[in-house]
Structures are given as structure tokens and as C-alpha cells.
Amino acid sequence: MADISISEQDFLIFREYFYRKTGIHFETNKRYFVDKRLVERIKETGATSFQNYFRMVRFEASGTEFQSLVNIMTVNESYFFREEYQFKCLVNSMLSEITKNKTDKAPIRIWSVPSSSGEEAYSIVIYLLEHWPDIDKWDIEIISSDIDTDILNRARQGIYSPRSVQHLPPELLKKYFKPSGAGYQICDDLRQAVEFTRVNLMDVDDVRAYRGFDVIFCRNLLIYFDDVSRRQAAETFFDALKPNGFVCLGHSESMSRISSLFKVRKFPEGIVYQKPEVNK
């Protein structure tokens, strides 16, 4: 097969299309990263040129190749305090709004989905304990869900590699973890603080019971869904939230591209989405 090359024009067309479909924008300095992966997929699929490949991606009914492209263009790595700005937003902005409007003393409920191996849910707990001044005034429930029961078991065990915890300040690592083999295990108190449950977001019967949440974290998951599944997930979050509850998505994801159900809220720490009180 002749060498496949990606021209400047090809890159621009691809970048524009990929942004339209996923919300992920590649700066020009990412050109090498994008070109390399595009060429890899072109060769893998047996396409003879960027043009042929691009047409296949756009018009393949199953969307399988587009999904492969999304997978290869995104980096799926979970670690403690990933996208920390949203935890800051939680303790500095969202929770103060939630508690201000609360008319009862019921627990504040947070849903982290997908749980993966638990880094996000435990990060939320640590962040609340360390940075939320009102932590002693309110009860908090944290539920973390995933479709994969093996990964849920790993989350419950709470054992992590040094790479997973590398963004944690040393004093927090010391405070909340104990050494375990070549890595660390999160302390029993935190392991007991989070409820890990199996749920398939696409199964209406599975998600029906998930109601009354104040905040949902769903970061870097919807990017792997097709359009219909994304809409369905947005509807699930809508039904799971209390009025005025918040959804936090990954930095490259935008609810506005998926559904018009939510209001965009711009806080100093970042953008989140809010379920309106009334849906007119």
C-alpha cells in the first residue's frame, strides 16, 4: 500500500467534522497526534486515502468506525483529582447554592457514574472532607455506579497504582491511604463511605430507582455513546436529579450538543448543567 498522508486541508476538514460530532477541538499543535491516529485507522480499515476513509466514517450506517476513531482520539485514564476544577466548583459554588435552597435536612445526594475503579467517587469524598467548610452541617450520600461488576469490585477494594494517585498532595496520600504492594489502598473509612452499585444507564428499568440526586458527575463517558444513547443518558440524568440539581460532564463534553433539557450554568470554576425548576 502506498504511503498515506494527511494534507493540511484533510486535517482541517476532519477537525471541523470531529468537533461538530463530539465537541472535541484539536489545536493545530495537535496535528501530529491526529494525523498519526488517522493514518493508523486508514490502514487498519484498508481505505486507500483520507478521502475514502472520511467518506466511510461519515456514511457507514453502523457508526462503528466513527466510534473506533473516537476511542483512539480520546485518552481514557482515570486518576485521583482528575479535572479538579469541577470538585472546586462543587465545594465553592454548587453546594452553597444547593444548601441555600434546601428546605429540609435530608442528605445531599451525589451520583458518580461511571465509577470505573472508584477514583472519582473517592476524590469527591476527599475533596468534601478537605475543602467544604459546611461538611459538618450536612449529611452527604455518595453513590457510584458502573455497568462492569469487575471494575466495581476493584472500586470497593480501593487499591491504586502510584500513577493513579500522582496528582494527590503528599499529605492527603498519607492521610487517606495506606501502602499496599507496589501501590496504595484507600482507608477503610472512605471505602465504607461510598456505595458502589451496578447500573446500565441505557436500561430504563435499571435507572428508574435512581432519583433525588443533587449533583451528578458523568465525565468522559457520553463521548463513547452514539447520539441516541447520549440523549437517553441525558433523560436519565434529568429524571435522577432534583429540580435545580447539577450535572458535571467532562471538559470536552457539552450537554448543549446533546439535549436542551438543561440550563448552562457558568460558575467561576467552570461550566456545569442544571435541571430547571420548570421545563417550558
Binding site: 450520600e141 463511605a193 435512581y210 432519583r211
Partner: peptide, 16 residues
């Protein structure tokens, strides 16, 4: 710790 845990059965029981 003010973080309280809800057991799975309670999640499901909320659905009537």
C-alpha cells in the same frame, strides 16, 4: 464522618 452510606436496597425501594 458526615458522609453516610445508603444501602443498595434503599436505592431500589425508593421506586414505587
Amino acid at each position: 464522618m458526615p458522609i453516610i452510606k445508603q444501602v443498595d436496597s434503599e436505592i431500589n425501594d425508593t421506586e414505587k
